[in-house]
């Protein structure tokens, strides 16, 4: 498996993500500038956290028009795995790859704190190494993480089990305590908490490894399936 991590102007979690993938989980990962327009040769693409284009207009609104996003859309449409974390989640909603939007936290505070989540769906490409309803603690660091979708979209998300992570104590006003969702096809994940910041005991825990290991497991199984 080989992963691409996109660096937008203003991304600040790209090298952390590369470290978590490569040094901790053994997944080769390349940093790809947002000015490029190809993702050939990759099994998964990560959109990292940060403040792409200064969060001008709305977070993720400008990044969505970067040259690389055309390639990300094609990659996702072809069934490739796309993971957006924090600002990456915001970009995916702006690009229409995930439903809903991320609004200002109800407190209006930028919240940087550990959050305890429940893994509510372990039947996804990104969560199969967790156990159902497992409690995991991951850091959150956002001002706009308050998930909003209209009632029809929200009901649709729940009906199709697209919610992967929920907050145990809602920090930001997200509807249905949503911390992470997939698209209907299940190959695109967006989450506000930062798994890449919880991959070593030194950083306070290893609960984040499950996201990367789940994906590695999924890609490996698919390869065995194709070969077999």
């Amino acid at each position: 498996m080989r992963a691409a991590v996109i660096t937008f102007p203003g991304s600040n979690c790209d090298t952390d993500l590369q470290w978590a993938l490569q040094q901790i989980c053994g997944i080769p990962a390349d940093l790809i500038p947002a000015s490029q327009d190809s993702l050939a040769g990759y099994d998964a693409v990560f959109l990292p956290g940060g403040f792409s284009y200064g969060d001008y207009l709305r977070s993720g609104a400008i990044a969505r028009f970067s040259p690389i996003m055309g390639a990300v859309k094609q990659f996702a449409a072809a069934g490739g795995y796309v993971i957006g974390i924090c600002n990456g989640f915001q970009i995916l909603t702006e690009a229409g790859l995930l439903p809903g939007a991320l609004q200002w936290n109800t407190s209006l505070h930028f919240i940087c704190a550990p959050a305890t989540l429940t893994v509510v769906n372990t039947a996804t490409a990104f969560s199969n190494q967790y156990t159902e309803n497992q409690a995991i603690t991951l850091p959150i660091a956002h001002g706009e993480g308050n998930y909003y979708a209209d009632p029809v979209t929200l009901a649709d998300l729940e009906a199709h089990h697209q919610v992967v992570f929920r907050y145990r104590e809602n920090p930001n006003g997200s509807l249905n305590d949503i911390a992470g969702i997939t698209n209907r096809a299940g190959n695109v994940l967006g989450m506000m908490p930062h798994p890449e910041r919880r991959v070593e005991a030194l950083l306070g825990g290893t609960d984040g490894q499950g996201v990367f290991n789940s994906l590695a497991h999924t890609v490996k199984e698919a390869a065995v399936h194709v070969a077999g």
């Binding site: 207009l57 709305r58 028009f65 909603t93 439903p99 609004q103 909003y148 209209d150």
Partner: peptide, 8 residues
């Protein structure tokens, strides 16, 4: 496309 996020 840009100035408004029609989701919200």
């Amino acid at each position: 496309q840009l100035l408004a996020n029609v989701n919200m």
